[in-house]
Write a protein that binds this DNA or RNA. Sequence first.
DNA 1: TCGGCAGAAATCGTATGCAATCTTTTCCAA
DNA 2: TTGGAAAAGATTGCATACGATTTCTGCCGA
Lengths: 237, 237
Amino acid sequence: MNIADQTFPAIDGANEDRAQAIRDQLRDAIVDRRLAPGTKLSEGEVGTLFDVSRTVARAALQMLSFEGLVRTERNRGAFVANPSPEEARQVFASRRLIEPGIAIAAAGRMTPADVAAFKTQLEEEGRFIAERGPTARRSEIKASGDFHLLLAAVAGNVILQRFMEELVARSSLVIALYGRSGISSCGHNEHMQILEALEAGNAERASALMLHHIDHIEADLDLRVRSGPALRQALEF
Amino acid sequence: MNIADQTFPAIDGANEDRAQAIRDQLRDAIVDRRLAPGTKLSEGEVGTLFDVSRTVARAALQMLSFEGLVRTERNRGAFVANPSPEEARQVFASRRLIEPGIAIAAAGRMTPADVAAFKTQLEEEGRFIAERGPTARRSEIKASGDFHLLLAAVAGNVILQRFMEELVARSSLVIALYGRSGISSCGHNEHMQILEALEAGNAERASALMLHHIDHIEADLDLRVRSGPALRQALEF
DNA sequence: TCGGCAGAAATCGTATGCAATCTTTTCCAA
DNA sequence: TTGGAAAAGATTGCATACGATTTCTGCCGA
């Protein structure tokens, strides 16, 4: 999987920050697994693809590097991150710490509009599960992450929201690398249960369900080190 | 307070990343309050001060902007962040969520070397409290933050560690803006109590103490909006 | 055939130039 | 004096150029 094989919508050269737009495109591609972990993202290529100079492409890659989605090596370039099992565990440890609290905060702030937004989101999620094929699978992983992001938005703390954006994006990478099965339908059920608790204003229950939900996601991963770490490093694409 | 009044150690033009070195210098200056909130950080000036091109200075400022220490406005430039009371509350809400968990994780991983490091840190903290003068006050705030950063390092989760680095840095800004008194000596006592609990392996107690500690720090702030938000915005340096 | 070395090609790090945008100053009329 | 418009100045956004570093390639000797 090479970045040159991807097609990206043109960046509207309007007043918006173009580097940010490119970052968003690339992030989507990484989270959707259209760009595999380890793929090289050279400044020149990214620039050509989006029709901007290396300066702008570089800025976009720097942003992704801050988010942990891209790893940059001096004088070598940027690569889609290839999280280690240990990193994967830390991602989920972080989520276990943060998301139950976010659920509690969100429970106290849910508006009818929020409930409606969640229902729309969950419907879409359900549709992707029903469909078959790799495209649907990708959309499904994305939608599953969107549930958590929506929750973070409702919680109303922009700092935590940004942390969650990073954690959800990194989780997608981790699931891509270490995911075992299609536990997703189970996750969908759990999302619905969490929404019920939120709608009922039952913060405690929402929080507990969230904790279990994260445990379930992580339990579906196979985080055993497959071979000696030296070999793994050497093979790192 | 203008950035041009500051003196910075020269960046060693060696193999290290120069933008990163500049970011660290600027972050220290912001956290130490040598650069006041609202101070303009123009690319050209930063570049001249550190003897690098605007390209490198720009990269450093972009990093600080990601950390929330610097706010950038398109076509206008970068300014030391000026967090609103609401933002301040969110910083502390985030810390209340994360730090008790970090304390628990750290309690299970403390080595004798860690304990020694904490003791050294707390001694230094104590020294700054004893001293008088604005310089000592700055060092004291910095040292107080270092306690929390050390704890995050011991906890062993690099993701959470990075989150904490951001939160501690932003807290320094918030304290600079909204801090009322020298509650710091009280904070120092609390740090010592937390260390005792950690040393005893009492994770629950360490966690509870941490939560109270954060509450105390926030309680020392005066987060009332001083004037109409419109006026405040207008006066924003 | 294989390892390794030299040159070529690719890629990155950084400085600099130019256009676009914003800010400040100047100046004139009310 | 005050308001406002226009010019001058400063600063950013972006592209491009060039040296430095790394990677690739082809060739040679063992």
